[in-house]
Nucleic acid binder design. Structure first.
Lengths: 155, 155
DNA sequence: AGTTATTTGTCCGTATGTATA
DNA sequence: ATATACATACGGACAAATAAC
């Protein structure tokens, strides 16, 4: 229940309540949230408060909204592994609107940049995990008997 | 100038205009933006439109706002290098409000996570650059005379 | 097919609170 | 104290996209 006398604003309280429902699985990925007018009536607040709460969750990447449709809990995207080259710099920032359009990035999703002296690649953070090279094999363990790691090329 | 007949909303047009001024250096880091009422009058739009435009730029990490003060173009933070261990997974996502408070992260700044089997560290993306291990020295160039660059490496 | 209802997006105005200058 | 400025909350209105019939 929202508390008007609390030192936290109404829309932040509502955002926290919805966030908890998402985290606890009451609103699983793919589920629709109640409509804005519904939440507005249910909590006795203006639609403005509801929309501000939605904006918070959108900025956190938790929900996705489309005009005419109810807000939806975002599905965790399948992540592709990207191998970081040696001596690479990995940074992250929020993409611009142009970059969001160009790479089809949803709101609240950072952009990961992998940069070396030669090249620079960009990846939407919800679809990519960057991994570093495996630990160098200790002396004598080089080219072992061929477990699940091929010595030549992984393809 | 904002165009009410354009197919782009007013607040997005205003956000783009301000973003361009920041990118082109007319509003350098540390500079104050005009006040909301000022922008409202100057462009003939409601304060709501101005605030929506500000929210866009905040979410992109371009400006920082404090109650009672004018919005400010964010200074590029000094970045600390973090060495990624071998076989590490590097991901990024937007922090929750609690995480923002806990690590003192501004709006529009992603959270970088470096995870291995043993540990997991979190870093604000505006203050950290993760770098991978340098390329292994080629055979024979091992333990060279200690120049800045290995002689046969492309970089 | 088309028509209506629902739902989110945008924009306006106003008022009040709270922090800064 | 007064003025300025951003944050929050209310209300209303219309547009645009979707869903339902």
């Amino acid at each position: 229940m929202l508390d008007r006398r609390a030192d936290v604003s109404l829309y932040r309280q509502l955002a926290s309540a919805l966030r908890d429902q998402i985290r606890h699985g009451e609103l699983p990925p793919g589920a629709e949230l109640p409509s804005e007018s519904d939440l507005s009536k249910r909590h006795g607040v203006s639609r403005d408060v509801v929309r501000d709460a939605m904006a918070v969750l959108r900025a956190e990447g938790l929900i996705a909204t489309v005009r005419g449709r109810r807000a939806m809990v975002r599905e965790p995207a399948v992540k592709v592994s990207v191998q970081a080259p040696p001596a690479a710099e990995i940074t992250a920032r929020m993409p611009t609107v142009d970059e969001r359009r160009h790479w089809n990035i949803l709101e609240g999703v950072p952009l990961i940049t992998v940069r070396t002296t030669d090249m620079e690649t960009h990846h939407p953070a919800d679809r990519v995990v960057v991994h570093t090279a495996p630990a160098p094999a200790p002396d004598g363990a080089l080219y072992g008997f061929g477990g699940d790691e091929a010595p030549s090329d992984s393809g």
